[in-house]
C-alpha cells in the first residue's frame, strides 16, 4: 500500500514538474513573441483598422447630428472644458489671496511680538532726547 502511495506521489510530482516546465517554456516563447516585429506589425495593423472604422462611424454620426441640429457630446465637452478652466483660474486667485492673508497674519504677529519686546535705549545717539529708564517707549510717549 505504501509503495503504491509513494508511486502515486512520484507521478504527481513528475506531472507537476512537467507542467511547470511547459508553462515556463510557453511563457518565455510568448514573451519573446510579443517583442517580435511580427506581433508589433499585426497589432499596428489591427489598431489602424479599428481607428479607420471609428472615423467612418464618427463622420457619419456627426453629419446626421449636424443635419438635425442635435447638440452632441463633443459640444458639451467643450463647455465642460471652459468651465473647468474657469475653476482653475478661480482656484489660483483663491490660493494667491490665501497666501497674502497668511503673510499679512505673520507680519501682524511679528509686529505684535516686536511691540511687546522691552525696548532698549539707543547707544548714545541722541542722549539728550531719551527719557531715562523708559527707553524707546518713553521716547514715543514724550513725542
Amino acid at each position: 500500500m505504501e509503495i503504491m502511495e509513494n508511486f502515486y506521489q512520484d507521478i504527481l510530482k513528475n506531472a507537476r514538474d512537467m507542467q511547470n516546465f511547459w508553462e515556463n517554456r510557453t511563457s518565455q516563447m510568448l514573451d519573446e513573441y510579443v517583442k517580435s516585429q511580427t506581433f508589433i506589425g499585426a497589432m499596428t495593423k489591427s489598431l489602424e483598422s479599428s481607428l479607420d472604422a471609428r472615423k467612418i462611424l464618427d463622420a457619419s454620426v456627426s453629419r446626421w447630428a449636424e443635419m438635425f441640429n442635435i447638440v452632441t457630446k463633443k459640444e458639451f465637452d467643450r463647455l465642460n472644458q471652459q468651465t473647468y478652466d474657469g475653476n482653475v483660474r478661480l482656484q489660483k486667485i483663491e490660493s494667491g489671496i490665501q497666501e497674502m492673508t497668511r503673510l499679512m497674519e505673520r507680519q501682524i504677529e511679528l509686529l505684535a511680538k516686536i511691540a511687546k519686546q522691552p525696548a532698549t535705549a539707543p547707544a548714545q545717539a541722541t542722549p539728550e532726547k531719551t527719557v531715562k529708564g523708559k527707553g524707546a517707549q518713553g521716547k514715543r510717549e514724550k513725542a
Binding site: 489591427s46 483598422s49 479599428s50 479607420d52 472604422a53 467612418i56
Partner: peptide, 9 residues
Amino acid sequence: RAHVAAWDN
C-alpha cells in the same frame, strides 16, 4: 478594412 477591424477588435 472596417470589416477586418470589427472582427479583430
